[in-house]
Structures are given as C-alpha cells and as structure tokens.
Nucleic acid binder design. Sequence first.
DNA 1: CCAACAGGCCGTAAATTGTT
DNA 2: AACAATTTACGGCCTGTTGG
Length: 320
Amino acid sequence: MTSYTPGQGIPPAIPSGSSDIASSMQVGRESARDRGTNTPSTRSTESTRGLQPGNQRRRVDRDELSRINEAMPERDREVLRHIDEHRYLTTHQIQSFAFTAHGSAESAARTARYVLARLDRLALIRSLPRRVGGVRAGSAARIWQLAPAGARLLRDEGQTYRTHEPSLRFLQHCLAVADVHLGLRQLTSLESVEAIDVATEPHSWRRYTGPGGERRLLQPDLASIIRTRDFVDRWFLEVDLGTESLPTVLKKCGQYETYRSSGIEQDTHHAFPLVVWIFTNPTRAEKVKSSILRSPRLTPELYRLETMDGFATRAQEWLQ
DNA sequence: CCAACAGGCCGTAAATTGTT
DNA sequence: AACAATTTACGGCCTGTTGG
C-alpha cells in the first residue's frame, strides 16, 4: 500500500508504470444474474467493446428521463455531478466522493456499487470495459462515465453529448486529477480548515489578455480555495503524468506568469494563488524544479512541485 | 406492507508474492 | 517450477431498519 491514502485508502487509479494497459482490457462481463456466479462469460466476444450489457445503447426518451429525474434521490444526482465534473471516475473514487457516512468502508463500497448498478440500468451512466489485473493484485476498478441520458439530465436538454473512446493518457489524467481532488477534500479533516472549495474544469479556467492584447485562456486542472481560521489559501493545481515534454511544462509556467502580471487575481483576491504541480514521477519533479530555478522569466516562489504521494502530507504543512 | 438501503457473510477472479 | 497464500475488486444472498 502506498502512503497516499486519502479516505479509506484509495489506490492510484491506474498503474502509471504500465505501458500496455489497453491490451489487458477485458471485455465487459455479461449480466451475472442468470448464471448464478460472476464467472467470466464464454460468450464475451458478442458484446460490443466499450459498452456494458446493462444498457447497450439504450435510448431514454424525454418522458422517461423526466420521470427518472423526479424520482431520483439527491445522492444519485450528486454521483452524476461528480462523474460529470471529472468525466471519468472509478467506483472507488465515487465511493470516496459521495458515500462517506457509512459504518465501514466495505458497506460504503457495496452501497456505491449498488447505486452505480442502478444508474447503469437506468442508462444514465456506463462503464468502460473492465481491465483485469489491478495495481498490485486483483482486478482493476471499474471506470464510469456519463451516458447520454445522464448528461441530458444534468444539463436539462442542453447540447447533445457524445461519448468517445478516451485515450489512455486522457483517462489516466482524469483519474489522477480526481485523486488530487479527493486529496484536497481530505484536508477538511484538519482542525484548522473550515471550508474547501474545489473547482474542476471548466470552472477552474481563467480568461486574460496576453501581452499583444490577444485573448488567452489559462486552464488549470483544478482551482481550490481553502479557508482556514486565519487565512484563505488559493491554489491552482496541475497534474502531470510525465506525458508532456519539459518545455511544455515550462511554457505553461510562463502562462501563469503572464496571467499573474495581468493582476486580475490580485485585484479580486489580494494575492495570487500558489501554482501546485503534481507529478507521478519524482525525478521529473526535480527536473522541473531545477529548470524553474534556472529560468530567468519564472518566479520560483510561485510554484510548489510535489509528487502524487507527497502532495497530501505537504499540503497539510502549507496550511499550518 | 413495501421500497430502499445497511451491513454481515460467503463466493469468485486474477495477479502478485512467498514457500516448497 | 509448482503451489499456496494474499490482495483487491466484485457479486449474491440474507437479515435488519426506517420512512411512506
């Protein structure tokens, strides 16, 4: 077990070291109800990749959706909102977000699965094909996304929602950001912390004008406001899985510098937020750190470079 | 009474890890 | 190398509780 354990011990959602996760994906299982066990089906070749058997492209018409909407418990809606915010979440992450008031982690997990299975049956959410072989042992977590009906329900008949096959990188990034989000929420347990607000994309975005007067957009993965007894701490968070080149990371730092010189944040909040970079690879964190120190354009005090594991504990220190 | 959980107990899958 | 134990994730089944 790693040291990064927000909540009831959330494992890293996807092993970052593995380069061939897609090939170990298993086709979604058939409904186990009529077989008596959850033995993998021998007919699995029939099922379409990317779809679970529960709601194979099931259509939900307006009337049905409105009936579902009215009868839906608040917690179900909360689950949908969390999935919407992060685009993809594992069962475990959803449990940590929305199933917290339970006697034990096991019962919370069971109830989470129960609720997710219901939302799946209602065709509001669907899960990605399940990967076999977990972080260390056991089977991997299910990964959920909104189905079109779920998206319609949240956006009350807004634009159409199209799910596309996510790239592995994108998926890993979404799940890593969600882990960081959960880590932030975990800070509520600190005595000095009074309230935590975490904005996901696109609420975390900031508009500003560049040096040439052109419109620019800063897109942090997360933007958080943490109110403690004495201070209000504001952070921009960037999660790096080692997929972006070093110059790209530094360029992004440059964007933060430009945005800082616009003075927008300082005007409304007195101070500029800390920019927290979270890396999965510790040596990479060091490399970026030294690059920032060497760069004449960048102000090192603005940044914190952390690893995924170290973030939760270091964040506590910053709030002291 | 019923629906909707809550939670305990047991069973299964699969990869890792330790032991022979 | 072969085997067993362990770990993680998940499902089924059962009984109990609570509000409508």
